[in-house]
């Protein structure tokens, strides 16, 4: 069993089976690097994750610890220094399983909890969780207006009216699509 600690003061710790916790690539790599140390006795602090979010993460990895491992595709790194390979970057269809549908904090007032969860999944590199979370958010904002999306994603309209007009001109070709 591995102990994970939230960033709260005092930290809240969760004890998780090693197999489950290794769904996080970040922690898996860390544990591999620390091979030889008794990690059962050493709590791992997670500076970016608060207790309610960590509780969700733990729930999710425990539920999914026996899933067959996802097919590893060589991941194209984000810096995109190589221009040749992005063309066939077709996103695979993501289906959110029933259990996960109930699991995701989907009420509108839980929106920020959902974002925190995705933040944590990103930081901990739990790709399947990130995939379904992003898919959920995409489905949520799909077909919505610009104002709605702005509000949902807690974003400010930081365009000047001039910039907005210019952008409008730029994308005029997409009208009526």
């Amino acid at each position: 069993m591995i102990q994970l600690c939230s960033n709260d003061d005092p930290p809240v710790s969760f004890t998780v089976p090693r197999k489950a916790v290794e769904l996080s690539k970040t922690i898996k790599t860390m544990l591999e690097d620390l091979e030889g140390f008794d990690m059962e006795q050493t709590p791992i602090p997670l500076p970016n994750v608060d207790a309610p979010t960590l509780e969700l993460i733990v729930k999710w990895v425990e539920q999914h610890q026996d899933d067959p491992p996802p097919v590893e595709k060589p991941r194209v790194e984000d810096d995109d220094s190589d221009d040749s390979d992005a063309d066939d970057d077709q996103e695979p269809e993501v289906v959110i399983p029933e259990w996960d549908k109930k699991f995701l904090p989907t009420d509108d007032e839980q929106k920020n909890q959902l974002f925190k969860l995705l933040n944590a999944a990103n930081y901990l590199e739990i790709k399947p969780l990130l995939d379904i979370g992003c898919k959920y958010v995409a489905d949520k904002i799909s077909g919505q207006t610009v104002e709605w999306v702005r509000d949902y994603l807690n974003m400010e309209n930081d365009y000047t009216p001039e910039e907005e007009a210019k952008l409008k001109e730029e994308i005029a070709w997409a009208e009526g699509l």
Binding site: D78, E91, V94, N112, F115, K116, L118, N119, A121, N122, L130, D131, G133, C134, K135, V137, A138, D139, I141, S142, G143, V146, V149, R150, L153, N154, M155, E156, N157, D158, Y159, E164, L167, I171, A174, L177
Partner: peptide
């Protein structure tokens, strides 16, 4: 903590229906 970091946001964008994407450029810089 209330905003998604860039990588998940990019992923969200990739899942959006294509015809909605140009409009989405108005959301923010």
């Amino acid at each position: 903590f209330s905003q998604l970091p860039d990588r998940p946001l990019e992923q969200v964008l990739r899942y959006l229906p294509a015809h909605q994407v140009p409009q989405m450029r108005f959301v923010s810089r």
